[in-house]
Simulated scan of single mutants.
Amino acid sequence: MISFTMDQLNGWIGHFLWPFMRLTGLILVAPVFSHGAVPNLVKIGLAFLLTVAIAPAIGNIPHIDINSWEALLVAAQQTAIGLAMGFVMQIIFTAVEIGGEFIGLQMGLSFAQIFDPANGANTAVLSQFLSIVTTMLFLVFDGHLLMLSALVHSFDVLPIGLEVLDRNGWGVVIQWGAAIFSYGLLLSLPLICALLVMNLAMGILNRAAPQLTVFSIGFPVTLISGMLLLTSVLPHSGAYFEALFQQGFETLDHLISGLAGH
């Protein structure tokens, strides 16, 4: 007859529960996994399957009574770590969407809106297009696998326990969040400069030949030129996206080290 005590049962549950909380926090916020088109049940099921695969490789999990206040504190702590890690990677996609907003505003496409299921709100068409391109490149570069690998590595640097997280780690998230506008502007800068020169040329043309209805021809010329420029610039932007992903993973490493107090 097989018998076990409540302490053993608490240990078995905790060995899977605490990694599950960190994984759930990551999947709820991280790009690709957190997409609005993915049902919540699928996200929870994916977190459970990943926990079953990862938990046996995690050592030194402290014994914490799941019916205590300490268990609630550890669960909140692990969820916060996963949310912070997912948020760091999600900032990359937000920066790309902001770059699309800048380009669309300069091209005259700022009024073209489409419903984005990921954000649950209307988004500029160009931002949605660049977001899809970024998602495809993220998968091609195995970004989703590297992100899960970083989470597994976080259990070594930041083990499960009752230790208070260092506030310097949250400072890393704040500093990385401030980079949204700069990276978005760098992405859109070539097209913004070219379209700005074109608008200046249209203004000079309006002064030189007032009989031309610049306001009538300006919009289609700017739109067509912007699409041609985007078609020529986007195929050469792979290195920029790769560097952006690399910067995101480096920030992820700094986050984990900062929360651990290293």
Rank of each mutant, 00 (worst) to 15 (best):
L126K: 00
A47Q: 02
I103N: 04
S127Y: 04
N60Y: 02
A80R: 10
P56Q: 02
A124V: 05
F138R: 06
P117I: 15
F129M: 11
L148Q: 05
N40H: 08
G143T: 04
I58M: 10
D166E: 05
D156R: 04
A80I: 06
E101Q: 13
A75L: 14
M136R: 00
V38Y: 01
S68T: 03
L158Y: 05
G161P: 01
Q90K: 13
V74M: 01
S131C: 00
H144L: 14
D156W: 12
L146A: 13
A84P: 03
S131Y: 10
L165S: 11
M89W: 05
G143Q: 07
G36D: 03
F138E: 06
T123A: 14
I66V: 10
V125W: 08
G100S: 05
F111W: 02
K43M: 10
L105N: 00
F111C: 07
A53M: 13
S131I: 00
F141W: 09
R167M: 15
P62M: 12
A121L: 08
D156K: 07
V88H: 04
F93L: 13
S149R: 13
H35Y: 13
G82D: 04
L145D: 12
E97Q: 14
M147W: 10
E70D: 15
F48H: 05
D156T: 10
N60E: 12
V157W: 01
I91L: 13
M89K: 04
H153I: 01
L165D: 04
P62T: 08
V38D: 03
A95K: 00
G45D: 02
A118N: 12
Q78G: 06
L46A: 12
G45T: 15
L73A: 15
L151G: 02
I114A: 12
L109A: 01
H35V: 07
F111E: 06
A150L: 11
I44T: 11
S131N: 07
F48T: 15
S68K: 08
L126S: 03
L162H: 10
G108C: 07
T51W: 01
F111A: 13
L162V: 10
F111G: 10
A95C: 01
G99T: 00
I61Y: 05
L72C: 02
A71W: 00
Q106P: 00
V164A: 08
Q77H: 12
L158D: 06
N122R: 08
V164H: 02
L145E: 12
G100K: 00
L146E: 10
Q128S: 09
L41Q: 14
H153V: 01
A84C: 14
T123E: 11
L148D: 03
V74R: 04
A112L: 13
V96A: 06
V133W: 08
L50M: 07
L50V: 12
A53P: 04
V88W: 04
G120E: 09
G86K: 07
P56E: 02
I160A: 03
Q106F: 01
L162G: 09
P117R: 08
G100C: 02
V152N: 14
Q78V: 12
E101M: 11
L73H: 10
H153M: 11
L73S: 12
L83T: 01
M147S: 15
M107E: 04
S154H: 05
D156H: 15
A118G: 03
F111K: 06
V164R: 03
G86C: 11
F87R: 10
T123F: 07
V52S: 07
L145H: 14
M136V: 15
W69D: 14
A80G: 07
F129R: 01
G82N: 12
